[in-house]
């Protein structure tokens, strides 16, 4: 139970003297490392900052400590070395599994976080309804998760986090288990919501096309222990559409990212 406590997060205050990032920085990892009690060295000396409006994707081979990074960022896991500072405000966190409570309807699932945060009933109903509309699931409020497709469940999971209007979102391979067509569609949907809700994001995937398509920044991580090998700025303006994937510049950038991964 001990490592479930959020103990290592210190919200950065306005008098931030560390000098890394501006006062609006949503989250900063300063030389963060993680070694598990069994000796596994999962993450090695990672530093990164996420500013508002940034969509940062971390790509890397499976088992490279990408998820560990997010778990440390959220406070679910304590860091071994270094420091994580997160600005005030809620954190949106979408897991690879939609983690919907099977005994709750879509509406009730989306209300869950507001409920845990103690919002009163009318308020949380309204917020849930708005979020469900935003992810395009109007009319499914009374369905149970078992009756939904994988893609719809992910959208419910996203809606659930949106109710708290978080300035920062973590996505831990949310579309990893979906088929390619659904994934492409949800990539577009996610960008639409990103534009609408205006959060900063850390997105984890092992799909290079998805990484470049979604992001403002792509970080390439090495295999275990995970280090940041290289970071790329993605120059394409938003809104993006699927045709971008056939743009030569897009192919060139994904090629470069792929090369860094392959050399590793």
């Amino acid at each position: 139970m001990g490592d479930r406590q959020i103990s290592n997060i210190q919200p950065s205050n306005s008098g931030d003297t560390r000098g890394r990032g501006s006062s609006s920085t949503l989250i900063s990892f300063d030389n963060v490392s993680k070694t598990f009690p069994d000796g596994t060295h999962a993450v090695d000396n990672v530093s990164l900052n996420v500013e508002p409006g940034q969509f940062m994707t971390v790509v890397g081979p499976s088992g490279c400590g990408k998820s560990t990074l997010l778990r440390m960022g959220s406070g679910l896991l304590p860091v071994s070395e270094g420091e994580v500072r997160r600005s005030e405000g809620n954190l949106g966190y979408v897991f690879q599994d939609a983690t919907l409570l099977p005994w709750r309807t879509v509406q009730k699932n989306v209300e869950l976080f507001c409920e845990l945060r103690g919002l009163e009933r009318g308020e949380r109903r309204q917020r849930a309804k708005d979020a469900i509309d935003l992810v395009g699931l109007s009319g499914f409020n009374r369905h149970y998760p078992a009756a939904l497709s994988g893609g719809m469940r992910m959208r419910v999971s996203l809606a659930r986090s949106l109710t708290l209007d978080p300035p920062l979102f973590f996505f831990d391979e949310p579309f990893g288990a979906l088929d390619e067509i659904t994934r492409e569609y949800l990539n577009l949907e996610l960008l639409r919501i990103f534009a609408h809700a205006g959060f900063g994001a850390v997105f984890i995937t092992h799909n290079l096309y998805e990484a470049v398509f979604l992001s403002t920044d792509v970080l390439v991580m090495s295999s275990r222990p995970g280090r940041i090998l290289k970071s790329f700025q993605v120059p394409f303006p938003y809104p993006r559409d699927l045709d971008l994937r056939f743009d030569p510049a897009f192919a060139e950038l994904t090629g470069e990212v792929s090369e860094v991964l392959r050399d590793e």
Binding site: I6, G75, L76, T99, L101, L112, L116
Partner: peptide
């Protein structure tokens, strides 16, 4: 209860009674 469900409740600082009532008990039904 799957560990990831517990994570959700931890992220939103749910205490033991809430966890029991809203997560473990319905899961056990």
């Amino acid at each position: 209860v799957p560990a990831s469900f517990h994570d959700l409740f931890t992220l939103h600082s749910a205490g033991r009674p809430t966890r029991l009532l809203k997560l473990q008990f319905p899961n056990a039904l």
